[in-house]
């Protein structure tokens, strides 16, 4: 499903080179729920950006569904994102002028789905997430947890094959975090969607079946646990 080969990313900060990712090799299976953990500066966010094709690697490649996204131009990448990728942000990143329904339907707009059709889909998914009575509210009228649910619905609405999440619970309190996390796992399992999220919260990561730990731009632990007891802690 996702294949990362010899991935290296070097930033130039001032005159100095900073190695964010050293040499990453990683494979994620279809339908896997994967958490990338690591401390601040470990390179976990850079890895997510690379996986989602938000920036180009210095070396190596990222292949999703057999397509090398590292070599795509912006136009191809946009179409690829429309059809294959969902994204959940830490800061929700909803469009302030749009209602919850319109926000969820937003990615479908880029695909050219007619308004009625895409909003019908958006309503259905929001209903599933217990957001029925908040459908026509603007983001400013929603709580953090509610906003993130809209953000999650937006990622799922296009039925992508993979969803990337960048600290999706980072701005939420612990109770809501738990709810949102469970929801993410439930929906991706139900729809057999590959889910890759970045978090600095090891406790939270334990809910995932696979945990990839990064230190200084390299993978130091890669734990798959089909059975709960086999989970590993750092």
């Amino acid at each position: 499903m996702i294949k990362v080969q010899n991935l290296r990313k070097v930033y130039k900060v001032g005159g100095e080179k900073v190695v964010a990712l050293d040499n990453i090799n990683l494979e994620i299976e279809k339908g896997e729920f994967c958490c990338i953990v690591g401390t601040s500066g470990s390179g976990k966010s850079t890895l997510l950006n690379q996986l989602a094709g938000l920036e180009k690697p210095t070396k190596g490649s990222v292949t999703i569904n057999g397509e090398n996204i590292s070599q795509m131009d912006e136009k191809k990448l946009a179409v690829f994102r429309q059809n294959n990728i969902g994204f959940i942000f830490q800061a929700y990143n909803l469009m302030p002028t749009l209602t919850a329904v319109e926000n969820v339907a937003f990615p479908l707009m880029f695909k050219g789905v007619p308004r009625k059709e895409r909003e019908k889909k958006a309503r259905a998914i929001l209903k599933e997430m217990q957001m029925k009575d908040r459908m026509n509210h603007k983001p400013t009228e929603l709580s953090g947890g509610q906003q993130q649910r809209v953000g999650i619905a937006r990622a799922f609405v296009g039925r992508p094959s993979v969803i990337f999440a960048d600290e999706p619970t980072g701005n939420l309190d612990s109770k809501t975090t738990e709810q949102v996390m469970d929801m993410l796992i439930e929906i991706s399992e139900k729809n057999n969607i590959t889910f890759v999220m970045v978090t600095h919260d090891n406790e939270l990561a334990k809910k995932a079946k696979r945990i990839v730990t990064l230190v200084d731009g390299n993978i130091v632990h890669d734990t798959k646990s089909d059975i709960d007891t086999e989970r590993e802690e750092k």
Partner: peptide, 16 residues
């Protein structure tokens, strides 16, 4: 700028 970035992440094409 942020909105534009979000739109790009969500798959909006440059021409749009």
């Amino acid at each position: 700028r942020r909105e534009i970035g979000i739109m790009k992440v969500l798959g909006c094409e440059i021409k749009n």
